[in-house]
Design a binder for these strands. Sequence first.
DNA 1: TAGATTGTTAATCGATTAACAATC
DNA 2: TAGATTGTTAATCGATTAACAATC
Lengths: 221, 221
Amino acid sequence: MAAESPVPLPALERLSTYIRCLMQLERDGVASVSSQDMEKHTGVSAAQFRKDLSYFGEFGKRGIGYRVVDLKERIASLLEIDREQSVVIVGAGHLGSALIAYPGWRSYRFKIAAVFDREPAVIGKRIRQYTVQDITELEDQTARLGARIGIIAVPAWEAQGVADRLVAAGIVGIVNFAPMKLQTPEHVVVREVCFICELAMLSYLVNHPAGGSEPAHSDDP
Amino acid sequence: MAAESPVPLPALERLSTYIRCLMQLERDGVASVSSQDMEKHTGVSAAQFRKDLSYFGEFGKRGIGYRVVDLKERIASLLEIDREQSVVIVGAGHLGSALIAYPGWRSYRFKIAAVFDREPAVIGKRIRQYTVQDITELEDQTARLGARIGIIAVPAWEAQGVADRLVAAGIVGIVNFAPMKLQTPEHVVVREVCFICELAMLSYLVNHPAGGSEPAHSDDP
DNA sequence: TAGATTGTTAATCGATTAACAATC
DNA sequence: TAGATTGTTAATCGATTAACAATC
């Protein structure tokens, strides 16, 4: 088949917003929504919403709208979160522990397959139902568990080494919490999460009243 | 002055990337960089880098490049992270605790001014150097501490209530970790952090080999 | 049927890239 | 000076918005 136009990354990011919203609507017992309703709930314009979905097919009924449950399931299927996927976490410090305690795993059908660290003081420790394993086990375990996604929750200076290990173990997708640009092979997808960067952005936005005027040259008084 | 064109948000987001990179370079003892070097270190193209800076003024020397320390300080000044800013955290669970333990606060000159929760079991608890305070103290404390930025690290169903309280307390910038679109007045800037959304994106990207072709209609076999 | 709302096309807008004159 | 690299302008590209025919 002639390659169709690829889905814009921003559209893909919004898909997560939609499904999150749809999960909420389902819990609230709402049966169907219009693109207008979605605009109210997500802040994404109705036109944008319909356009985003159009990259993937047809999801609604003209004159009617969308069935909440159906749409949720169709988007879940697009994102491939309609089946269980194993994820390995490297780093069992404060961040790793908070990730383990995160309540959203199940609704997205992600499963923490194993947790690793390299600190002897931490290895063997139990966190919830997990026992922290030695990082040297990573390769064997990842293969055995069939995990393809990994999370890096170690200090910056250890991140690249961990990334290399994950790649060697067959991981093809990484969420990186360390403030470090990772060098990885082409076939590996990396998403950076930088909490402090959000705070820095906020600092700018809060201190430059949004009207959108003057970007405040630093040589201004 | 005639209002200059506003800075594109993506450019602003990259500024965080640049400063993070420059901090690293400074630690590594690198004195100066070219836009080419920055491309290697950050993955952002040299042209993009120069264009982004151009929204704010001139930062380099033609034929030479940029002084690492100077550029870092100028960007810090643009983002207004060249002076201490107080931040309040609401939610002292796993996530709140991990945030408190986060090592990056100081280099961005953010200061955790206070930590709040509404659970009697948690109020009074010490986490590092902080004593968790009753959420009812939020308004008084925030005013007293002069905090303008707040972090929401509570469950989804409590997030809106906390947001309302933060706004009432005079907070104008919020980083929201709860999976909930917040309703806030115009003047308040909200940045959502959605960890599980990153994972969902990754799921799509990993399962749709990147070439960029066929977005996989869900009615495909 | 009339009213509503989708899916899609075309028009607009904005961001990225490429190219180059300025200048260190 | 010659070589390097910036800052900026113009060209390209891609994403968002608006509008509307299709249709429930």
